[in-house]
Nucleic acid binder design. Sequence first.
DNA 1: CTGTTAGCGCCTTCAA
DNA 2: TTGAAGGCGCTAACAG
Lengths: 362, 362
Amino acid sequence: MSWKGSKMATIRDVAQRAGVAPSTVSYVLNGSRSISEETRRRVREAIDGLGYHPRASARTLRSSRTSVIALALPRAAGGLHAVDGRFAIELSDAAHVLGYDLLLTTSQDKAEGLRRVALSGLADAAVLMAVDMEDARIDVVREVAFPAALIGRPADEDALPWTDLDWAEAAAMTVRALAAAGHRQMVYLAPARREVDSRRSYALRGIAGARQGAAGTGCAVEVAHAVDDPARMAALLRELFARHATERRPTALVVQHPSAHHHILTSMYAATGLRVPEDLTMVVVGTLPGDPPSSVLPRVELPVATLAAEVTRLAVAAAEALRTPHAGTGEPDARLLAASVGHLLIPPVLLPGSGPGLLPPG
Amino acid sequence: MSWKGSKMATIRDVAQRAGVAPSTVSYVLNGSRSISEETRRRVREAIDGLGYHPRASARTLRSSRTSVIALALPRAAGGLHAVDGRFAIELSDAAHVLGYDLLLTTSQDKAEGLRRVALSGLADAAVLMAVDMEDARIDVVREVAFPAALIGRPADEDALPWTDLDWAEAAAMTVRALAAAGHRQMVYLAPARREVDSRRSYALRGIAGARQGAAGTGCAVEVAHAVDDPARMAALLRELFARHATERRPTALVVQHPSAHHHILTSMYAATGLRVPEDLTMVVVGTLPGDPPSSVLPRVELPVATLAAEVTRLAVAAAEALRTPHAGTGEPDARLLAASVGHLLIPPVLLPGSGPGLLPPG
DNA sequence: CTGTTAGCGCCTTCAA
DNA sequence: TTGAAGGCGCTAACAG
């Protein structure tokens, strides 16, 4: 078979074996011109016989297409959310569906990895995960005119194509639903303060949505920030729920910190003496689909697979737009890239959970 | 700057601007021969001035090195563990440390993705995650003589280099520690039956270790398999802990299903009326470092970062071994590849957790 | 210490 | 419907 010790077969070996020209083999391979059935069969046979497989580097050098999409993960301090890994895998699947491979780029210092991948032509386009409101990586891809699409809604919505869950509406809808169910006091436990300080889009929009959802309902919504340390989180929960007289104690807790809600759920009783859901209604925003502990609670899921598929589509579209020469000048046009910008804001769905729902305890 | 609309700078542009030969620029770039300080400086200036960056495809075509490592994720039915994504990210970091990028390959049908990546020369080596005792991907990489290393200990330990947590010892050590603390009856909740049916290495070895650990202690260890569905899991917990008379009820639960222990922790009381840790000692095997809900429990952590670093090292070593010509014949030798096989079995550490430890309730 | 040159394997225009 | 030939950008062997 195709033992790698000797030289591997090339397109010329195939041509020779099939008794045709190398170009004919190439055409058979990528079907860009009509080939007689007989020739095609002979070429196919030679390919199978030699175990031939085209070399990606030669293809890319010639055609300047890689069939690779780069994924720029954030990798900020402390930010090792389970959701990042889940996205990586879903994106890999989505890319394969479109005929692409996925290259991981944990961009650490000022998006250096992303810039390197773009400049060295390792990928045709990039997907940027977990964007900040003003993201340095956005400047990088624009500077080097590299096709890219974002998971996350940046402040400048027209700079690049993006897709995102509508976090603001997710939070607002949740707060409104709790208010309608009769809650008067609630706590919105937002992502850790570091996420807010680094202006992560989902965190800021979620908080804004919670405030906006409360407006007009007459509900009091206190916003707090999750902390990583278990002991400090327990202290925070005590502070939030134990400092009030019983009749003024919040009756609902909305958690937007996706990686903290397990911990909250398991430590709530020990920390505050309150049981979920008997003594406290808890709703989670941004859970991963298929997570059993979340499925008992009312929640808004983060549609990871949909987001992955959509952002991949947008990235590929951007790559194609850049490759297509402009009608007038014959050159690929930066404005064309901007014009191809598309958005997709996914409307949140509030799922009931298998528990007693949103009604206040008692 | 380096606007992509026009043609991008090549090594010849740099050479011209610096007044040297293209090869000189190449040598400055990869330092494989001594260059005068003056020349080096001029070349550097030209590179910066033009915003030049070498094209990866040209490099690869010429040198047949990609500086890319492929990661073959399993992607079996239902197997979307949080640990997979976490590994992907840690591996990406580990690869970057060694100067490699990481290409994701969600190998679905009979490792087709992996075979394609190997044959098309997209990567220098592969890392195979979550291997089965007899893994089809092992046959694939051997068939095409592609350098690879495994996360997970296969049945044939000498086929390829691998690294793994010593799951058998982790389970045995846990059971022994519980027995020493005074437990007489315990439950070992192993990974889902599907993991066992597909002969996942960590699952089989964990179960074997639990049994072996029990032998000689006089302890009764019942092995059960986690299930995904919350309702069925609750039923299982009831079955395991509620069917015995109180004095014969198991007093300890060891959970090896890494993605299920959150759910078990949150649903145990509702399902059985037992509280952790007041009424039941619970130990978790294979938790992810930094997971707050796990840190309250006694546990054996899965050292993801270490495993990622080690397996990357092994994969790169395998790639280099294959590239090095055999002393005698001048050809790279398949036996050399086999001889370079290395293993690393990481000894488990039983962490105490922030709770009351291993002592039986009451 | 530096320059010249021959490809690596493939795609694609041009010619038949 | 097919063949011949040039070159994508880079590295490394050979020559000075």
